[in-house]
Design a binder for these strands. Sequence first.
DNA 1: TTGCTCCTCACGTCACGTGAGGTGGC
DNA 2: TTGCTCCTCACGTCACGTGAGGTGGC
Lengths: 262, 262
Amino acid sequence: MTDGWQVGELARATGLTVRTLHHYDAIGLLSPSDRTPAGYRLYGPADVERLYRICLLRRLGLSLADIEAALDAPEWSLPAAIRRHHDELDRRLTLGHQLQHRLRAMITELDRAAPPDPAELLDTLEEMTMLDSVVQKRIAILVYADIEAAYDHLVNVFGLGAGLLERDADGRVGHGEVEAGDGVIWLHRVSPEFGLDSPRSLGASSATVMVMVDDVDAHFDRAKAAGAQIAYEPVDQPYGVREYGARDPEGFLWSFATPLDR
Amino acid sequence: MTDGWQVGELARATGLTVRTLHHYDAIGLLSPSDRTPAGYRLYGPADVERLYRICLLRRLGLSLADIEAALDAPEWSLPAAIRRHHDELDRRLTLGHQLQHRLRAMITELDRAAPPDPAELLDTLEEMTMLDSVVQKRIAILVYADIEAAYDHLVNVFGLGAGLLERDADGRVGHGEVEAGDGVIWLHRVSPEFGLDSPRSLGASSATVMVMVDDVDAHFDRAKAAGAQIAYEPVDQPYGVREYGARDPEGFLWSFATPLDR
DNA sequence: TTGCTCCTCACGTCACGTGAGGTGGC
DNA sequence: TTGCTCCTCACGTCACGTGAGGTGGC
């Protein structure tokens, strides 16, 4: 009819609610550039593009205030906002893991003892929550002779996230990082002085890594198609996960798993 | 004067604010059992004990509503509340890590390119945020000949959190878990069929673990006093952490580190 | 006239923070 | 009279969800 989108259409297209668009209008983040005679909001192409960017930044978890600032002067406020947000999220996640630690300890305690009397239960709780972990993060470090080849395999075949890859002056890679959901895994060079060697030359491995994924069968199909060397196909394990195993180029055994819903 | 604590005294003693105590009173979570003639709140011993428990459960992150329910019927609602809360926090942390993943990708992108023009920057962002990681968690698995001894060392000397320790029918330990801040590390038995062996018998290790701690020097002192075999003492590393190394009973190299503030 | 979409208030969420304006006891 | 502690409203936070009550176009 008139050109432009009505709220309902826009809401359906973006997956937002009408109320959300009203809210963005009310706070001045995104006001439609036109209205029908009856007062209906009409969003033009520029509005839609702005909304699109708002949605993008929302997916990064930025606040509406930060988004507004970033859209007004993206070249200098966007990087700063993202960095700030990253650091803050990092702090929040660390606190969240401390909470998890306490909660796990409590649950272990509750499982161990048959339902004790309430007062006692709270007393136990008291002792446990007092000693808080000073440990914040763990990073597994795997030893490879050819870090770059390993990195490529982990990223392209196993689907891990591409992280840092540091080269020295000669262009050789001395340190690599891949992302795996809740953090990173480091790739370390062979180092005889510290007794570190690749499974390939040792003939066996002293560590493996389990990676929890959304859908283990889908992951298996993709990895296999990408050339993964499968050690064992997906099976339901008695310990509550469906899991498969694969070897990387230097002989590390990786297992990928999804919890079985009980 | 009269017996009982005034709000201010109680606030100072618990580290809460007066307003918080007012709030607990307003919602009926903790109302003082008495008032002075002038209307001042007076908290008796039973009130103080209840407040103490409220603080404990708050540290576990329970909502005030859950806390009230748990204090009224702790034996059946407390375990359920804690489990529920644990699972919900787990979901939130997984989402948080997905966010971290996106933010890290963005920051990498921002570092790589010299400040590009805003539209381009947002276009790049668009591509990146579309492909979301299906990977959720990583668990490092270390191979030990004597899991129980390793477990004891990791918990008592390195200060990691005591997790599961599973015994088979013969009473031998076949699987162990220790907690390290943002998740667990598994201890696996030697398994020739999968090419898994302990560093001790291999003569070298194919993996190490870095553990980020609050205060690396304090951790060093404690670990050393507890009998840790130190590989190298705390030093400032060029890559931005202060770090020391120690060997566990089967020859794994562990490094403990704290970020240097720049 | 019946549906459908739209409109503008306006309260509720969660756990308090932050004043505003005022009173009783030493 | 001066300080100090206390009191009771009451608005603000963050990003909307959820009605309430009503209107314009096909």
